[in-house]
Each structure stands twice: as structure tokens, then as C-alpha cells.
Design a protein around this nucleic acid. Sequence first.
DNA 1: GCACTTCTTAAGCGTTTCTTAATTGCCTCG
DNA 2: CGAGGCAATTAAGAAACGCTTAAGAAGTGC
Lengths: 224, 224
Amino acid sequence: MTTADRPSLLLVEDDAALGPLIAELLYPDYHVRLVTNGRDGLHVGLTEAWDVMVIDRGLPVMDGIALIAALRSKGIGTPILILTALGDAEEKVRGLDAGANDYVTKPFDAGELAARLRALTRTYAAVPAPLSIGDWELDPAQRSIRSVYGHTVSLTAKEGQLLAALAAEPDRVFTRDELLSAHFHASDQPGVIDTYVHHLRRKISKAVIRTVHGVGYQIGDAHE
Amino acid sequence: MTTADRPSLLLVEDDAALGPLIAELLYPDYHVRLVTNGRDGLHVGLTEAWDVMVIDRGLPVMDGIALIAALRSKGIGTPILILTALGDAEEKVRGLDAGANDYVTKPFDAGELAARLRALTRTYAAVPAPLSIGDWELDPAQRSIRSVYGHTVSLTAKEGQLLAALAAEPDRVFTRDELLSAHFHASDQPGVIDTYVHHLRRKISKAVIRTVHGVGYQIGDAHE
DNA sequence: GCACTTCTTAAGCGTTTCTTAATTGCCTCG
DNA sequence: CGAGGCAATTAAGAAACGCTTAAGAAGTGC
């Protein structure tokens, strides 16, 4: 998102009556900027960052299709929705293949347009949910751990596995044998765990991994 | 992309006549897998990786909307297109807000469906916007790299491809096999990558490409 | 066809990471 | 408070992995 609150939306529509109408319709949910021809659309689209664009098909100076193609060729990946009266399938194919992400025909339903725009601007946090550990965030894929202040520390494979195992179930106390069988070779001595706990405490901070005397290790606090 | 050639497509459609028909329609452009109820769709959608999904609205066992919501709640971000007979605006809003990315009503135009699927699977990462890598800028043609001080170094084809692949997703760690399958012949030994990384480091600067021991290589930071 | 560049393979060497083990320090219970 | 057990720390050998080099193969242009 470009702004902290509402997504920014660039509306390119030449119809003097319809343009302001759509802008007003979208105003509660987006920061709307209205331009009325293709050349202005290209300029504003290239020089400013937008979260989504709504582009009319038939535009003066520069056609909507040409505008989209120009934006895409310049590396602009912003989601684009075409809004137009031309509704037959061939036109839709041309518009979508020019680089648009969705195609809505006039007359359109305001609710549907809004829903389609939501679908375009929606982002999924599909990223392998980073495990949070106190002030730290573990990224298993990247084998590193980031503090909340940008500071990043890289971990070795075993360090990462041990930390991930502990962090997977916060507050649970793991015995050395449990941790061993999870990610280390069966032949390993339980003392291996002690060594890696030490490495981790040195890399991160002492307080993160708690020792439960006579039992094992734990992240977070169980009792008290 | 999941496969090197065609994108993979999961089709969830219970109509015994329509399902195979759509599958055949899409077959030239996608690796299609057809399942006929929501529960199977959920299972296959969660356990295998797909480039795009086409889901019928009315499904036995588990409704299409419920299926999409379940997939999204599990962190599946794959583009989803709803294909259904229910066409009024309210239904579209419900479907899109459940997490679908596009909504097509039956009867549909084959060309439009294909174009909308292309729009969903299209990525703009391939756009030759000059990739910036630290103090360097990779030329779109990928055959040379310029430092911020005018200094230019020419790269061989493979060097450029490898660097571009890494730079396309900064901070992501690529395994040797991923990099191999991207731009080298499948028969190549993973050691090829090591050699090219070495070449690049000598031409540019050592710090640009980071080694993640036991995993692969990365551009961007995660160091300290 | 020849010279040159680029690509690929492979092997030795150096570094990082993993594991073991011994020493030192600390906690708990009698 | 002291003994015994448990944990923390350190160091060093072993193993895995990556870096570097060099040389032959394949490709390209003249």
C-alpha cells in the first residue's frame, strides 16, 4: 500500500459526467485521482505510485488499450481494471491480453465493481508465517532471524531447526531427547542440545530460551 | 510456475458433462486436474502446488465459497476464478469477498475465460525494468551491468541470466537446483552454479551475492 | 576451417558447521 | 551450608560444504 490508510486509485475516464460520479462512488474506500485522457494517465501512472487503476476503454489522445500496453512495457505491474461499454468477448480478450487484470462493462453494478477492486488490491500473507519469538521473528525459509528493529542475524541449519522446534509450541517445555529426535541424529549425545542452546543465546539474547532445571528447555514463560 | 512448460490448473466442477468439457478446453494451455467435489478440492488444493484454480460455485459436500474461504484461511494465495450460473451482483460480491480473484458466469465465452485466466497467471516480473543490485544496475538486455559511477562490466549470457534470476527476488534464497532449472540445462551438475557465482563475484564485488550454507545463494541482506 | 569466446566438468583446497568431550560454574535438596 | 547432579562454556577434531582453479568441450563469428 502506498498510503497508510486507503489504497490509492488512478481513474482514467473521459466522460465528463461519469468520471466524477465514479470518483465519488469510490471515494470512501480509495484515494481517487481522476484524469481525463490517456496521455495524462500515462504520465501520472509512470511518475506516481498507485495501488490500482481503473481505465476507460475509449479515451481521447491515447486509447485505453494503448495506455495499458505502455504502462506494462515500462514495468508498471499495478493491477488495472478496464471499465467500458464495449462488452463482447473479443474486446474483453484484447483488453485483458493488453495487460489488464479485470474487465467490467457499463452499465456496471457499484457493489460488483467495489468487490472486484477489493479482489485486485487484496494481498495474502501466504508467506510461511514467520514465528515470533519475543522481539524476534524467525524466517524458517531464509534461515535467519530478524529483530523488530531491522537487525538480522543468520542462523546455521541446526540452530534454525532447534529454534523453530522450540518456537512452534511456546511455553511448552521440551526435554533434550525430544529435541534430539526431532532434528538431530539419533546417535547424538543429549549434550549437543546444550551446545546449540548456547550458540543461540549468544546470537540472539540470553532471555529468549529458558532453562527448566532437570527437565529441558522452553521459549516463553510457562508458570508464574 | 510449478512446471517448466504449462501452468498447472486445478478445476473443481461437479457437473459430469461440463467438467471434462472445460478440462479439454483448457488442456492446450494448462496442466489440468479435475476434481468433482469441494472436499477433494480442498485436499488437493492444500497438498499440491497450483498456478491457478477454477472453482464451481455450487458443489456437493463442500460449497465453492466455503472451499475458497478454507483455502485462503490456510494461507493459499493461488489465483482463483469462480465459474458459476449464479450471476447477480450480490452473488459476485460474496464470491469475490470470500477470496476469489475473478468471477465468470455461465454460459461463458471460451475466449474470455482463457483471457481472464491468462490475466490471473500473468506475472510482470519478466518486465525488463532495470534491476538494481546494490551499487549496480543490470541492463535489461542482461548482457552488461553498470555501476553507479559509469563503470560498465559486460556479462556473458549465463552470467546475466543467473544474476537476473537472483535479483528478480531479492532476499529470497535460491537453491542450486532452482537456479539450474531456471536457465541451465537439466543435465548440468549443481556445481555449475558455484562456478558462475564465482565469476560474478569476481566481475562485480564479493558482497553482492551471499552464500547461505547448505541451502543456496541470495541477493540482498540477511547478514550480520 | 580457424581463432576466439563461452560453457561445463572435475578435483584439490579452504572454510563453515556439526559433534564430542572436558572443564567450570550453578542450582537444589538433604 | 555442602555435596551431588545438572547446566554453561570452551575448545578441538570430524565431516560436510563451498571456493577456486584449470582444462577440455561446445559454440560463435570471421
